[in-house]
Design a protein around this nucleic acid. Structure first.
Length: 465
RNA sequence: GGUGGGUUGGCCGAGAGGCGAGGCAACGGACUGCAAAUCCGUGUACACCGGUUCAAAUCCGGUACCCACCUCCA
């Protein structure tokens, strides 16, 4: 079975057929860098990182573009509130986002274009749209340029909506629009906005509308037609609908497949509404390791809502530790080159990561049985399979990306504890040899009180936190 | 008003006509001096009401509740 993916436009799971055999071009809408990323934001990054890894593992040569929106209303508003330049806010938040992606082993894209770096490309495209009769400068002299939604028969095809059924935005500024549903390609500069947030254009100084950046940048880096366009569900409309409209109106084929990841919710609602500060990535990572957070996200299907809870997160962490425990006991062999059929089938079926994880657990159980039977060679083979599967999900514990980056402090601490525990273990083993189990257990209890758990194994006693 | 999604055992979370995904927790057993880890076993879950079918969590009709989007959003 080859890869099948759910396409939003067709509302069905369909075969993935690339435009060019053996290659896949993907454009994912990244974030508007206006606040610290929370776990919901980062889910999108993780989900599409898994897509990218799976395509690569399936032999595709993948070009992966993920943009950054670094100029928009929110950035200007927030920066003004905070009394800092908008470009400083955007830059800071972009660095936070990059850190969060790196922490979760989300590979850097092939390229990460930013909106502000592509104003000429956008202006070029807007001019083309005007020329082709799909856009017009506002009649009120505001300097705005709008896309004419009624000029495109296809408008609404991505989200299956009819123009007349759509509510006109209640807060939309009707100035100079032919139809209230027309959307801005270019926003004329307002007196209240900083000069630095404007660029020269044929329609006067201003800044780009939200959607045009993606059309321009996808076209530049992936070509007029490419394979997959991704993003969060909320982007289906208006953002993706409008991107598609602009690009098609410009004569581009644009994306063949549209993929949308669902939310991580809190209290049943989308995260941005509950603005839980505790859910920004660095703060969640005080509770679990990054690899465990990633496992938590990957263990759910990308199109399913995940109701975030720390309890579920802790459970996921414990579950992942069982997998790691097996790998350690099996001696962490190199990853195998072949993937198990159950895993491949699961991934080919619209990235069925939950079933893929189940396949990993099946292998772990098999491997643990082999270890119990003393078959270390067999167990090592299974462990190789497990590492290969984990790697596809970006969850290989030995991936240097998880780095022991936090300097030598941790290592030094480990050595110190090891030395201290070693002394106690000697005493305990002496007591055990003398069958003085009361004394032996007393020592174990003391160690346990310090948060260290002992395991007696055939090769000696091990400790872990 | 339009569009899309959801409701699964103590909990998390898959599946999409028949055979109980998987994980966490719990209980019993094996192993262990006792533990830990590991393995084995234990569950008749699919919001509600009808219908189709030999067979429905899955298909159809309806009801309830929840969420998302409608030109700001992962």
């Amino acid at each position: 079975m080859a890869l099948r993916i759910y396409d939003t436009a067709r509302r069905d799971v369909v075969d993935f057929v690339p435009l060019v055999e053996g290659r896949a071009g993907i454009y994912v809408c990244g974030l508007t860098v206006q606040s610290e990323p929370h776990v919901g934001h980062i889910r999108s990054g993780v989900n599409f990182d898994v897509l990218r890894r799976w395509l690569a593992a399936s032999g595709y040569d993948v070009t992966f573009i993920r943009n950054t929106t670094d100029i928009d209303d929110k950035i200007l508003t927030k920066a003004a509130e905070q009394g800092r330049p908008w470009f400083n806010l955007a830059y800071d938040m972009h660095r936070e986002l990059t850190k969060a992606y790196a922490a979760l082993n989300v590979a850097p894209p092939t390229y990460e274009p930013a909106a502000t770096g592509h104003v000429p490309e956008m202006i070029e495209m807007i001019a083309l749209l005007i020329e082709r009769g799909h856009a017009y400068p506002a009649a009120d002299g505001s300097g705005d340029v709008y896309f004419d939604v009624r000029s495109l028969a296809d408008y609404g095809s991505l989200t299956h909506q009819k123009i007349d059924d759509m509510e006109a935005a209640a807060d939309a500024d009707p100035r100079g629009k032919r139809d209230p549903r027309d959307f801005a390609l270019w926003k004329g500069r307002k007196e209240s906005e900083p000069e630095t947030a404007s660029w020269p254009s044929p329609w006067g100084r201003g800044r780009p509308g939200w959607h045009i950046e993606c059309s321009a940048m996808a076209g530049k880096y992936l070509g007029e037609a490419f394979d997959i366009h991704g993003g969060g569900v909320d982007l289906r409309f208006p953002h993706h609908e409008n991107e598609q409209a602009q690009s098609r109106a410009a004569g581009h084929g644009f994306a063949t497949y549209w993929m949308h990841n669902a939310w991580i919710t809190t209290a049943g609602e989308k995260m941005s509404k509950s603005l839980g500060n505790s859910l920004v990535v660095p703060s969640v990572l005080e509770r679990v390791r990054p690899i465990e957070l990633r496992f938590y996200m990957v263990a759910a299907h990308y199109r399913s809502n995940v109701e975030f809870s720390f309890e579920a997160l802790d459970e996921a962490a414990v579950g992942f530790q069982r997998i790691e425990g097996f790998l350690e006991r099996a001696g962490m062999p190199d990853a195998s080159t072949e993937l198990r059929a159950a895993f491949v089938d699961a991934m080919d079926d619209d990235l069925g990561t939950p079933s893929a994880v189940a396949a990993i657990y099946d292998a772990v159980r098999d491997g643990n049985k082999l270890l119990g039977d003393g078959d270390t060679t067999g167990a090592a083979d299974v462990a190789s399979d497990v590492r290969a599967m984990l790697d596809v999900l970006g969850l290989d514990p030995l991936d240097p990306a998880w780095g022991t980056s936090s300097s030598g402090d941790n290592d030094k601490l480990t050595l110190a504890v090891d030395a201290l525990v070693a002394g106690l273990l000697e005493q305990r083993n002496a007591a055990r040899a003398a069958k003085d189990f009361a004394a032996a257990d007393a020592i174990r209890d003391r160690i346990k009180a310090a948060g260290i758990v002992l395991e007696d194994t055939p090769t000696g006693t091990k400790w872990s936190l």
